[in-house]
Design a binder for these strands. Structure first.
Lengths: 225, 225
DNA sequence: CGATTACTTGAATATCCTCAAGGAGAGTGG
DNA sequence: CCACTCTCCTTGAGGATATTCAAGTAATCG
């Protein structure tokens, strides 16, 4: 559940390369903060993060922002959209993204049940992730939310030991339905409780010292196993 | 978006009857409050509400409850689960439910791209619904949440004019990430503002007097169109 | 009809947010 | 390479929104 945002399996685009004569793939680079696609735009492509990190969000008219997901290296995104994008996607840091034309994907999927099943699986996995987030946003306290977030990032992190967060406290806050100050206070509390520590000089390199306690604080006892 | 919880199209089980020689369909009755399936149980069936109403929920260890969705007459549910159910489902009132064996559905879908597409569409629609709920739970105020809920029920309601809510204030609260008192206060406020009124003697028969204002309060201006 | 459950409203409290200030880190140009 | 600037993060104090606790009334169900 934590291994990958939305549980999307990076293998899809690998599989597609087998049918590469019929699909169009291209790579793009985006600078820090650049928009990859906008909400309500037609969804012509699906995307895979090659390097960097991406956030998706929705805005309310008065500027309140809700981040839908973070996508890290290897993650596929934009698939969960139907005909039009339902989020805006932005590069968090300098990011390379691979684009696959939706139409060519659909064409291949028509004749390949395995790919069709992969698409359905990925969509179902997104649903699982998002359903857990509904419990978090509807019922968890600020400390539980921050603990759950750090746990998620911990398990998604490829580097063992130190975890490198590409996103700001504000991004985390908008992901968890909190303010950046509340996120900062929760992290400070976890630091005082020796559940995590900062590595080096920056506040974005974090070492989880006690995963089990963190999982208990997140109200996700199964994650401690 | 409001016409159906999760946008699931009730047509699936109708389509299936065309292949009824290969699928097993049966009907069950559940009393008020009865459990239809439990979280983490294997998902053997998908379900359609024939009559009545169903709620799905998750519980935290200390009893906090988050309702995932309400399913009304015609709605299909349990499809969004993978191999195991990720919610507990209960009848809100006396309810008749039609069950379809998942395996027989899968078998039919293997050879029928139309049904496969219907399944994918329904899953994608669930995702859309759930993503809008994330914005609601993460960033909306109590009044905005209650307004959005009433608007959703208004558009899903089959009866024109008076809307009959099968669920309690507590159910609504657990759906919106609030307490029942806060929901009650918000409804009272909308009543004082002449945006809705109660019909008859009960507090569950509601008439929306001003849909546009309600949509504005819900921060969903497009719903007013 | 009686008992139970559901809903509303008020008062006090808690959690999280807002406003504010200070300091540390990262990036830029001299 | 260092100074400068901008952004980010932390922490504190005060305030707002929603919750908790409580009581009373109304509606539903057997």
């Amino acid at each position: 559940m934590y291994s990958n945002a939305g549980g999307q399996k990076p293998r899809l685009i690998g599989e597609l390369s087998a049918a590469s004569d019929r699909i169009s793939v291209s790579d793009f680079r985006y600078g820090r903060g650049a928009e990859i696609f906008g909400e309500a735009e037609p969804a012509e492509y699906i995307y895979q993060v090659i390097e960097g990190a991406v956030r998706t969000h929705k805005l309310l008219p008065d500027g309140r922002r809700q981040i839908g997901a973070f996508h890290l290296s290897g993650d596929i995104f934009g698939l969960e959209n139907g005909a039009t994008h339902r989020f805006t996607a932005e590069a968090i840091v300098a990011t390379m993204v691979r684009l696959v034309k939706r139409k060519s994907l659909d064409n291949v999927a028509q004749n390949d049940p395995a790919i069709f099943n992969t698409i359905l699986d990925m969509t179902t996995s997104s649903l699982v992730h998002v359903q857990n987030r509904i419990l978090l946003l509807g019922r968890k306290t600020s400390l539980e939310r921050v603990a759950a977030f750090l746990l998620e990032m911990h398990f998604r992190s490829t580097t063992a030991g130190v975890m490198h967060l590409p996103m700001s406290r504000r991004d985390i806050a908008d992901y968890l339905g909190l303010t950046l100050e509340t996120v900062s206070r929760a992290i400070s509390e976890l630091r005082r409780g020796l559940i995590l520590k900062f590595e080096g000089t920056t506040q974005r390199h974090i070492v989880i010292l006690n995963v089990q306690t963190l999982a208990k604080l997140a109200d996700e006892p199964d994650a401690a196993a």
